[in-house]
Write a protein that binds this DNA or RNA. Structure first.
Length: 247
DNA sequence: CACCAGGCCGTGC
DNA sequence: GCACGGCATGGT
Protein backbone atom coordinates (compact mmCIF):
# COMPACT_ATOMS: atom_id res chain seq x y z
CA UNK A 1 0.00 0.00 0.00
CA UNK A 2 1.17 3.49 -0.69
CA UNK A 3 2.30 6.38 1.41
CA UNK A 4 -0.29 7.78 3.77
CA UNK A 5 0.59 11.45 4.02
CA UNK A 6 -2.62 12.32 5.81
CA UNK A 7 -2.03 9.81 8.57
CA UNK A 8 1.59 10.93 8.97
CA UNK A 9 0.67 14.61 9.20
CA UNK A 10 -2.70 14.53 10.93
CA UNK A 11 -2.62 11.23 12.80
CA UNK A 12 -1.40 12.58 16.10
CA UNK A 13 2.38 12.91 15.92
CA UNK A 14 2.25 16.53 14.80
CA UNK A 15 -0.20 19.33 15.50
CA UNK A 16 1.38 21.74 13.04
CA UNK A 17 -0.42 20.62 9.90
CA UNK A 18 -3.86 21.25 8.58
CA UNK A 19 -5.61 20.09 5.46
CA UNK A 20 -6.84 22.90 3.27
CA UNK A 21 -9.23 22.75 0.35
CA UNK A 22 -8.08 20.68 -2.59
CA UNK A 23 -5.97 18.20 -0.65
CA UNK A 24 -3.24 20.66 0.26
CA UNK A 25 -1.48 20.20 3.58
CA UNK A 26 -0.05 23.33 5.13
CA UNK A 27 2.08 24.14 8.17
CA UNK A 28 4.23 26.97 9.45
CA UNK A 29 7.71 25.59 10.01
CA UNK A 30 11.20 26.97 9.69
CA UNK A 31 9.89 30.55 9.48
CA UNK A 32 7.69 29.96 6.47
CA UNK A 33 4.49 28.41 5.26
CA UNK A 34 4.89 25.03 3.61
CA UNK A 35 2.18 23.73 1.33
CA UNK A 36 2.42 20.22 -0.05
CA UNK A 37 0.10 17.80 -1.79
CA UNK A 38 2.34 14.76 -2.02
CA UNK A 39 5.41 13.34 -0.40
CA UNK A 40 7.33 14.13 -3.58
CA UNK A 41 6.70 17.83 -2.95
CA UNK A 42 8.42 17.45 0.41
CA UNK A 43 11.34 15.55 -1.06
CA UNK A 44 12.36 18.52 -3.17
CA UNK A 45 12.75 20.90 -0.24
CA UNK A 46 15.92 20.64 1.87
CA UNK A 47 14.20 21.40 5.17
CA UNK A 48 11.30 19.05 4.54
CA UNK A 49 13.64 16.36 3.27
CA UNK A 50 15.09 16.20 6.75
CA UNK A 51 11.72 16.76 8.46
CA UNK A 52 10.19 13.80 6.62
CA UNK A 53 13.21 11.65 7.38
CA UNK A 54 13.98 10.60 3.82
CA UNK A 55 17.27 9.09 4.95
CA UNK A 56 15.32 6.20 6.50
CA UNK A 57 13.75 3.40 4.48
CA UNK A 58 10.14 3.31 5.69
CA UNK A 59 9.02 0.78 3.10
CA UNK A 60 11.56 -1.75 4.25
CA UNK A 61 10.78 -1.12 7.91
CA UNK A 62 7.09 -1.62 7.22
CA UNK A 63 7.78 -4.94 5.52
CA UNK A 64 9.82 -6.12 8.48
CA UNK A 65 7.12 -5.06 10.92
CA UNK A 66 4.44 -6.87 8.94
CA UNK A 67 6.37 -10.14 9.25
CA UNK A 68 6.30 -10.01 13.02
CA UNK A 69 2.78 -11.31 13.61
CA UNK A 70 -0.75 -11.31 12.24
CA UNK A 71 -1.87 -8.23 14.12
CA UNK A 72 1.00 -6.14 12.82
CA UNK A 73 0.39 -7.52 9.36
CA UNK A 74 -3.21 -6.39 9.54
CA UNK A 75 -2.26 -3.04 11.06
CA UNK A 76 0.36 -2.23 8.44
CA UNK A 77 -1.93 -3.26 5.60
CA UNK A 78 -4.81 -1.19 6.90
CA UNK A 79 -3.25 2.21 6.72
CA UNK A 80 -0.50 2.77 4.12
CA UNK A 81 3.02 3.83 4.89
CA UNK A 82 3.51 6.04 7.94
CA UNK A 83 6.67 8.05 8.56
CA UNK A 84 8.11 9.40 11.79
CA UNK A 85 8.53 13.15 11.56
CA UNK A 86 11.55 15.03 12.81
CA UNK A 87 10.05 18.04 14.54
CA UNK A 88 11.65 20.89 16.44
CA UNK A 89 12.15 19.86 20.09
CA UNK A 90 10.53 22.79 21.92
CA UNK A 91 7.48 22.76 19.68
CA UNK A 92 7.15 19.03 20.21
CA UNK A 93 7.60 19.27 23.95
CA UNK A 94 4.83 21.82 24.38
CA UNK A 95 2.59 19.92 21.96
CA UNK A 96 2.73 16.71 23.94
CA UNK A 97 2.39 18.38 27.30
CA UNK A 98 -0.84 19.73 25.85
CA UNK A 99 -1.81 16.24 24.74
CA UNK A 100 -2.31 14.73 28.17
CA UNK A 101 -5.90 13.78 28.93
CA UNK A 102 -6.89 15.66 25.79
CA UNK A 103 -8.02 14.92 22.25
CA UNK A 104 -6.24 15.67 18.98
CA UNK A 105 -8.72 18.25 17.78
CA UNK A 106 -8.46 20.29 20.95
CA UNK A 107 -4.68 19.93 21.08
CA UNK A 108 -4.48 21.47 17.62
CA UNK A 109 -6.69 24.32 18.76
CA UNK A 110 -4.43 25.07 21.71
CA UNK A 111 -1.35 24.77 19.51
CA UNK A 112 -2.83 27.37 17.13
CA UNK A 113 -3.79 29.73 19.94
CA UNK A 114 -0.30 29.57 21.44
CA UNK A 115 1.18 30.27 18.00
CA UNK A 116 -1.01 33.31 17.55
CA UNK A 117 -0.35 34.57 21.07
CA UNK A 118 3.41 34.04 21.38
CA UNK A 119 4.69 33.32 17.88
CA UNK A 120 4.82 35.76 15.00
CA UNK A 121 3.09 36.13 11.68
CA UNK A 122 5.01 34.80 8.68
CA UNK A 123 2.16 35.28 6.20
CA UNK A 124 -1.24 36.89 6.67
CA UNK A 125 -3.17 34.46 8.85
CA UNK A 126 -0.21 32.14 9.42
CA UNK A 127 1.74 32.18 12.67
CA UNK A 128 4.90 30.37 13.65
CA UNK A 129 4.96 28.31 16.81
CA UNK A 130 6.97 30.38 19.31
CA UNK A 131 10.51 29.63 20.34
CA UNK A 132 11.28 29.17 24.02
CA UNK A 133 12.63 32.72 24.08
CA UNK A 134 9.45 34.11 22.60
CA UNK A 135 7.50 32.31 25.31
CA UNK A 136 9.60 33.70 28.14
CA UNK A 137 6.92 36.38 28.67
CA UNK A 138 4.36 33.66 29.33
CA UNK A 139 2.21 33.56 32.44
CA UNK A 140 0.27 30.68 33.91
CA UNK A 141 -2.79 32.87 34.11
CA UNK A 142 -2.66 33.75 30.42
CA UNK A 143 -2.16 30.10 29.47
CA UNK A 144 -5.29 29.26 31.42
CA UNK A 145 -7.20 31.96 29.55
CA UNK A 146 -6.08 30.36 26.31
CA UNK A 147 -7.68 27.11 27.47
CA UNK A 148 -4.69 25.08 28.61
CA UNK A 149 -6.42 24.21 31.86
CA UNK A 150 -4.41 22.22 34.40
CA UNK A 151 -1.56 21.98 31.88
CA UNK A 152 -0.81 25.71 32.20
CA UNK A 153 1.78 25.39 35.01
CA UNK A 154 3.39 22.45 33.18
CA UNK A 155 3.92 24.56 30.07
CA UNK A 156 5.32 27.34 32.17
CA UNK A 157 7.81 24.94 33.72
CA UNK A 158 8.81 23.63 30.28
CA UNK A 159 9.50 27.15 29.03
CA UNK A 160 11.69 27.86 32.06
CA UNK A 161 13.63 24.61 31.63
CA UNK A 162 13.80 24.65 27.82
CA UNK A 163 17.61 24.70 27.92
CA UNK A 164 17.74 21.03 28.79
CA UNK A 165 16.26 20.13 25.40
CA UNK A 166 19.62 20.64 23.71
CA UNK A 167 21.18 18.01 25.98
CA UNK A 168 18.83 15.25 24.93
CA UNK A 169 20.61 14.54 21.63
CA UNK A 170 23.58 12.92 23.36
CA UNK A 171 21.59 10.59 25.58
CA UNK A 172 20.19 7.12 25.06
CA UNK A 173 16.48 6.57 25.48
CA UNK A 174 16.37 5.86 29.21
CA UNK A 175 18.66 8.74 30.14
CA UNK A 176 16.82 11.11 27.84
CA UNK A 177 13.47 10.06 29.27
CA UNK A 178 14.72 10.67 32.78
CA UNK A 179 15.96 14.13 31.86
CA UNK A 180 12.73 15.12 30.12
CA UNK A 181 10.72 13.94 33.12
CA UNK A 182 12.37 16.60 35.28
CA UNK A 183 9.93 18.95 33.54
CA UNK A 184 6.56 19.00 35.28
CA UNK A 185 3.79 17.39 33.28
CA UNK A 186 6.15 15.11 31.39
CA UNK A 187 5.76 11.45 32.29
CA UNK A 188 6.76 8.30 30.40
CA UNK A 189 4.20 8.64 27.63
CA UNK A 190 4.81 12.30 26.81
CA UNK A 191 8.57 11.78 27.03
CA UNK A 192 8.36 8.89 24.56
CA UNK A 193 6.45 10.99 22.07
CA UNK A 194 8.97 13.81 22.28
CA UNK A 195 11.88 11.40 21.87
CA UNK A 196 10.35 9.74 18.82
CA UNK A 197 8.76 12.64 16.97
CA UNK A 198 11.60 15.07 17.56
CA UNK A 199 14.80 13.21 18.41
CA UNK A 200 14.31 10.18 16.17
CA UNK A 201 14.69 7.71 19.00
CA UNK A 202 13.04 4.71 17.37
CA UNK A 203 12.98 2.56 20.51
CA UNK A 204 10.26 4.65 22.13
CA UNK A 205 6.88 2.99 22.59
CA UNK A 206 4.30 5.44 23.97
CA UNK A 207 1.33 3.85 25.66
CA UNK A 208 -1.77 6.02 25.75
CA UNK A 209 -5.39 5.00 26.32
CA UNK A 210 -5.62 3.50 22.83
CA UNK A 211 -2.40 1.53 23.08
CA UNK A 212 -3.47 0.21 26.48
CA UNK A 213 -6.39 -1.43 24.71
CA UNK A 214 -4.10 -2.91 22.06
CA UNK A 215 -1.63 -4.28 24.59
CA UNK A 216 -4.28 -5.73 26.90
CA UNK A 217 -6.22 -7.33 24.09
CA UNK A 218 -3.53 -8.52 21.67
CA UNK A 219 -0.21 -8.50 23.51
CA UNK A 220 -0.92 -9.50 27.12
CA UNK A 221 2.27 -9.90 29.14
CA UNK A 222 4.43 -8.34 26.43
CA UNK A 223 6.20 -5.00 26.49
CA UNK A 224 8.01 -2.77 24.01
CA UNK A 225 11.00 -5.11 23.70
CA UNK A 226 8.82 -7.50 21.71
CA UNK A 227 8.68 -4.94 18.89
CA UNK A 228 12.42 -4.26 18.68
CA UNK A 229 14.06 -2.83 16.67
CA UNK A 230 10.92 -1.16 15.34
CA UNK A 231 9.25 -0.16 18.60
CA UNK A 232 8.21 3.36 17.64
CA UNK A 233 7.05 2.62 14.12
CA UNK A 234 5.17 -0.51 15.21
CA UNK A 235 3.42 1.56 17.82
CA UNK A 236 2.38 4.11 15.20
CA UNK A 237 0.82 1.42 13.04
CA UNK A 238 -0.99 -0.16 15.97
CA UNK A 239 -2.17 3.24 17.17
CA UNK A 240 -3.50 4.18 13.76
CA UNK A 241 -5.10 0.79 13.30
CA UNK A 242 -6.94 0.64 16.61
CA UNK A 243 -8.17 4.20 16.27
CA UNK A 244 -9.52 3.57 12.78
CA UNK A 245 -11.34 0.51 14.10
CA UNK A 246 -13.00 2.63 16.80
CA UNK A 247 -13.18 1.42 20.38
C1' DC B 1 -26.75 14.30 32.57
C1' DA B 2 -22.73 11.22 31.93
C1' DC B 3 -18.32 9.91 29.87
C1' DC B 4 -14.10 10.60 27.09
C1' DA B 5 -9.60 12.52 25.20
C1' DG B 6 -2.03 10.37 22.38
C1' DG B 7 -1.58 11.31 31.26
C1' DC B 8 0.48 13.10 35.16
C1' DC B 9 0.71 14.49 40.03
C1' DG B 10 0.01 13.92 44.79
C1' DT B 11 -1.28 10.99 48.36
C1' DG B 12 -1.76 6.73 50.79
C1' DC B 13 -0.54 2.21 51.56
C1' DG C 1 6.79 -0.27 44.43
C1' DC C 2 1.40 0.08 42.88
C1' DA C 3 -3.59 1.98 43.15
C1' DC C 4 -6.45 5.66 43.13
C1' DG C 5 -8.75 10.38 42.73
C1' DG C 6 -8.40 14.84 40.85
C1' DC C 7 -7.71 17.68 37.18
C1' DA C 8 -9.59 22.18 32.91
C1' DT C 9 -11.81 22.09 28.80
C1' DG C 10 -14.79 20.98 25.02
C1' DG C 11 -17.11 17.39 22.35
C1' DT C 12 -20.62 13.62 22.02
Amino acid sequence: MKENLRETLLGGQSFSWKEEDGGVFSAVLNEKVYRIETLEDAKRDPYLYDYFDFAYDYEKAKEEIAKKDGILKEATESVGTIRLLKQEPFLTTISFILSQNNNIKRIKGLYDRISKEYGHMVEPGYYSFPTADEMKRVSVERLRELGCGFRAPFIYDAVMKADILKDVYDLDFDEAEKLLMTIKGIGPKVASCILIFSYQKRDGFPIDVWMKRVMNEYYPGKDKTYFAPYEALSQQYLFSWIRSKGN
